[in-house]
Computed example of a mutant assay.
Amino acid sequence: MGRHLTTARTYFGTDTRGMLEGGRYALLHTRSLEFDDLRPYVPGDDVRDIDWKASARSGHVLIKRYVSEKHHKVLLVADAGRKMAAATPTGERKSDVAVNILGAIGLITLGRADQIGMVFGDTRGCVNIRQRRGETHIESMLHRYYGHVRSRPGRSDIVCQLDYVATHYRHPMLIVVVSDEPEVDDRLSDSVRRLTGRHDLLWAMVTDLPAVGTTGDDRAGFDVSTGRYVLDSATLGPRVVTAYRRAEQHRVHRLAEFMTTHAVPHTRIDGSAQIRSRLVELTGVYARAG
């Protein structure tokens, strides 16, 4: 297993059972009537698949497993612009957290033999990697993304990537967006509306280190988008800092309300240590959708 997938597995683990199942386009992951083998029952399995005769003989509850006929087509859509060079609340670089999230999704698809591709980029354009299966393919995608975001990326604007996907991908699929927390405006609303009309959409947002120092941390911030420094909280004063924090709470609430209104399951991730719990929760919401 390659470097990026190995790192992702460190944070995500190896148990991917039940993830990315269901959803509005569950018909993309169906099974044939051809019996494959038996396996032990685990909580969450469909009781209709229990082989009662085999269970009685063995003394353990066994599930019939069938040969899969079709699988999900998964498309990763990732921000590879300057914003991903910023720091997260845990001090990690956002691009490092993002590549671990992308790798975790890749690990889930490996267990299901799903086809997976990726669109990433910045305001200058998009890189489109066709959907394929396999560990080598996923590691290659992660390597290309990481190389782009670590070079000299342009300004971040995830709407550019969303518009590209809405224009070039017509067949229904599962789209997983990995970006910073986007600005809610008419452009974002139009892009999300176009995508959710045809596809299933999940969104994992990598959060920023607060621009103004948290309590006990008065260091000045740095805006990676503009190259400008942000004054420290001692210089700004308590009234400005309080107003900033109030505005941040409003922004986060407005973004969550936007995603909920557009029926987009979403999560905010502060660092790599949260990837497992946040993605389990996110895929659980997806599985219950539709």
Rank of each mutant, 00 (worst) to 15 (best):
G2M: 01
C160V: 15
A78T: 01
A8S: 11
R124P: 00
V149L: 05
R194D: 03
S277D: 13
R39F: 03
E92G: 03
I158G: 00
A287S: 14
D45I: 03
A273G: 10
V206Y: 11
A85L: 14
G44C: 02
R130N: 06
C126N: 07
R194T: 01
D200Y: 08
V99C: 08
A211H: 02
A166D: 09
W203P: 00
L202I: 12
E181H: 02
P172M: 03
D37W: 05
T267I: 09
V42G: 08
H4G: 06
L33Y: 04
R24K: 13
N100V: 11
G18P: 01
R3W: 10
R245K: 09
R246C: 06
A263H: 15
R193G: 05
I129T: 05
A8C: 07
V165Q: 12
S140N: 09
L201H: 12
K64A: 06
A256H: 01
R276A: 11
R246F: 06
L188D: 02
L279C: 04
H171A: 14
G271C: 08
L209I: 11
D270A: 15
L142W: 00
P238H: 06
G2D: 05
W52Q: 04
A85Q: 04
D37T: 11
R152W: 10
A247M: 11
Y25F: 14
A85M: 12
H4S: 08
Y244R: 12
R65I: 01
R144Q: 15
V165P: 00
H29R: 15
R268F: 15
Y66K: 09
V230H: 06
A247G: 10
Y11M: 11
S140R: 10
I101M: 14
R187F: 08
L231Y: 14
G197V: 07
Q274W: 03
A104Q: 12
R254M: 09
Y41L: 03
L162H: 01
L33E: 05
R57L: 15
D15C: 02
D96T: 13
C126E: 00
A104F: 01
Q131C: 12
P40R: 07
T214Q: 12
T242G: 13
I275L: 03
D180I: 08
L27G: 04
G213L: 10
V212W: 03
A204L: 02
L202A: 08
H143M: 10
G121D: 03
I129V: 15
